[in-house]
């Protein structure tokens, strides 16, 4: 089974976000970058499917700056066979549509059974890259998947939607975006980390062209009005209830 996985280098979820001097992007000072957490589920699932099939390969792609080689090495250390960096300094701030076009261009013409993505990158939270790449490639996509089965040229997946779980079927080749719960991602072993150094990591310069979406400004979230401590223990309940009814008027 030939599996492609698309991954992104993102700030860790513990990052305190500060707006940079351009007023449009994250100030990267002191920020720790990691493999996008949802991409870990995608990589893990790719490795499991390859292991279950007993043959095939897993190739990782990332649209990123030169420093994204680190995250691709992490994917190789987890067990992927090869990696391709679609390198551009414009990548980190790229909108979803631009990212999807670059990835689709790079994947077109490759032979694959399955393309896996994380359901979203935890930086710009765009959600749309996987489904958009699939649409540009003319293949089906099942997004936010928590259970996946591939058999007889067909994918059966479960996804959590508001108020229930959808079971979706699609023929191969197909794209899938991974949601938390799909699996428990493995840690790279020392042996894996050593082996990753010798695995192929190809760097291809790409020009994303004109962005589809322009960032006008980035700012902190609107400040919350100051709150207060109503009281201590169960005795505070009547006053809390009064405030919710009379002051906040939410009950």
């Amino acid at each position: 089974m030939e599996i492609l996985v698309c991954v992104k280098r993102v700030p860790a979820t513990t990052t305190r976000v500060t707006v940079g001097p351009d007023g449009k992007s994250l100030d990267p000072t002191g920020v720790e970058y990691v493999l996008n957490p949802y991409d870990e589920f995608a990589v893990e699932e790719a490795l499991r499917l390859k292991e279950a099939a007993g043959e095939g390969s897993v190739t990782a792609f990332s649209f990123g700056g030169a420093e994204a080689q680190k995250e691709l090495r992490t994917v190789l250390a987890m067990g992927a066979d090869a990696a391709v960096l679609l390198q551009s300094e414009a990548a980190a701030a790229a909108d979803g549509a631009t990212t999807a076009r670059v990835l689709a261009e790079a994947l077109r013409g490759r032979s694959f059974d399955l393309i896996l993505f994380g359901k979203q990158a935890v930086d710009l939270d765009q959600h749309g890259v996987g489904p958009m790449v699939a649409t540009l490639l003319g293949i089906p996509c099942i997004s936010e998947v928590v259970a996946l089965e591939v058999a007889d040229g067909k994918v059966t997946a479960e996804r959590e939607v508001e108020g229930g779980r959808e079971v979706v079927e699609a023929p191969l080749p197909c794209a899938v975006t991974a949601q938390k719960g799909l699996n428990e991602p493995r840690y790279a072993s020392l042996k894996g980390i050593m082996a990753a150094k010798k695995k192929p990591l190809e760097v291809v310069e790409v020009d994303p062209g004109e962005a589809a979406v322009e960032v006008v400004s980035m700012s902190p979230p609107p400040p919350r009005p100051p709150g207060r401590i109503v009281g201590e223990g169960p005795d505070a309940v009547p006053e809390l209830l009064r405030l919710l009814q009379e002051e906040a008027k939410v009950l």
């Binding site: 700030p11 979820t13 990052t15 305190r16 976000v17 707006v19 449009k24 994250l26 909108d95 935890v122 930086d123 710009l124 939270d125 004109e210 962005a211 589809a212 979406v213 322009e214 960032v215 006008v216 400004s217 980035m218 700012s219 902190p220 979230p221 609107p222």
Partner: peptide
């Protein structure tokens, strides 16, 4: 960033 900031954007 999951609500830690907001962006104003234009679709071109």
């Amino acid at each position: 960033y999951a609500g830690k900031a907001r962006m104003q954007v234009r679709i071109r």
